[in-house]
């Protein structure tokens, strides 16, 4: 509760440590990961997505769940709402996990911005001494 407000207030009064959410993270994605990071895997192929007529917004990392869902809807035409509950749930869960990842990326960006600010201040103090 109050997250939206506190994030907005930080953006207004402390923009230097507030991540810009209109662009991807600005730091090296592998910085601070000595073992590296696993790459996100795109399962649906481009041809498949063309075949199912997905628009640009739908061609994300959850596209294969969407295709499963569309296929299920086509097969169970009048009863798709009931029969495709599972497929729909998988697609929704994938998007939920995608949001969690985006929130984690925000927090990483924010902490790295704060770290950068701390380092700059320390460097400034060291320069005066």
């Amino acid at each position: 509760m109050g997250t939206k407000l506190s994030v907005g207030l930080e953006q207004r009064f402390n923009p230097d440590v507030s991540p810009r959410t209109d662009r991807p993270p600005t730091f090296d994605p592998l910085a601070g990961f000595p073992e590296g990071r696993k790459e996100r895997k795109m399962v649906a192929t481009w041809e498949e997505m063309d075949q199912w007529n997905l628009n640009i917004g739908q061609r994300d990392y959850c596209a294969h769940y969407l295709i499963d869902h569309l296929r299920c809807q086509k097969e169970n035409a009048p009863f798709a709402g009931y029969k495709c509950e599972e497929a729909r749930h998988h697609w929704n869960t994938c998007h939920y996990e995608d949001s969690l990842l985006r929130i984690k990326e925000f927090e990483r960006e924010r902490r790295l911005l704060k770290r950068k600010q701390r380092k700059e201040e320390a460097a400034k103090i060291a320069a005066t001494q």
Binding site: V7, P15, T21, D22, R23, D60, D98, L101, R102, F106
Partner: peptide
């Protein structure tokens, strides 16, 4: 970008 409004702590979709 720095105007005061509500905001979600979320990076753009990948």
């Amino acid at each position: 970008p720095n105007k005061w409004t509500w905001k979600n702590p979320m990076m753009p979709k990948q």
